[in-house]
Design a protein around this nucleic acid. Structure first.
Length: 202
DNA sequence: AATCGGATACTCT
DNA sequence: GAGTATCCGATTC
């Protein structure tokens, strides 16, 4: 299920499909509970204005990691999808290596170990040297989740452009999110208004 | 609620 | 080359 083809497609679909899958880095990780999609047409995406030194990985192979520094001090982990697009991994529910995470995160509460892209990278010890690495080999391990998850969607966090696109996805009711989704955003119930339509590349 | 931290890249000049 | 904004988090107010 988690193959090159899984990633080499529209990032918004990948972002949704990733909720509930399991990510481990050097044997430490858990269940992905929050993601966001960024595409090349998307003004909020690093790739929107074309390749730069920082975003080079977004234009390399689907199924690689794109790791960048945020606000000068945090690392953020993305999964590269079709050219120039990626999914930001925003939160996971810790399941393995929790003690390692707690050490790296100065004893943080379990619910705050990986609740946010910067926290997640600190807990999983992801930094610059992981940029451009394949997700299909060590230190990464990706596997399908063991149970179905109800997915919520809503606007992305912390951006100032394309703020209305509902490209943030989350596991419904999870206590491990960086912030909650309003109840009304369960995916099966949402009706995306025309003003928020998702423009697909063709 | 406000602030600081301090890399990267875009914006003018 | 200066000024501004950024896919955030910890700490202080």
């Amino acid at each position: 299920m988690i193959s090159h083809a899984f990633f080499n497609r529209y990032a918004v679909d990948v972002a949704e499909a990733l909720i509930g899958t399991v990510l481990e880095v050097d044997g430490v990780g858990g269940i992905i509970v929050e993601t966001e999609a960024y595409t090349i047409e998307d003004p909020a995406s690093h790739s929107h204005k074309g390749p730069t030194k920082r975003n080079a990985s977004m234009f390399a192979a689907a199924g690689n990691a794109y790791v960048y520094r945020s606000y000068g001090l945090h690392w953020c982990l993305n999964f590269v999808c079709e050219a120039g697009s990626a999914v930001l991994i925003r939160a996971i529910e810790p399941t393995t290596g929790i003690e390692s995470m707690r050490q790296r995160r100065s004893g943080a509460n379990t619910f705050l170990l990986c609740a946010g892209p910067g926290r997640l990278c600190q807990a999983l010890a992801v930094s610059q040297e992981f940029d451009g690495l394949s997700l299909f080999s060590a230190p990464f391990r990706l596997s399908a989740g063991s149970s179905a998850v109800e997915v919520c969607r809503g606007p992305r966090v912390g951006i100032s452009k394309a703020v209305d696109l509902p490209w943030r996805f989350g596991a419904r009711g999870s206590g491990f999110l960086s912030r909650s989704f309003p109840d009304s955003t369960v995916l099966s119930e949402i009706d995306v208004p025309a003003s928020q339509s998702i423009h697909r590349r063709e």
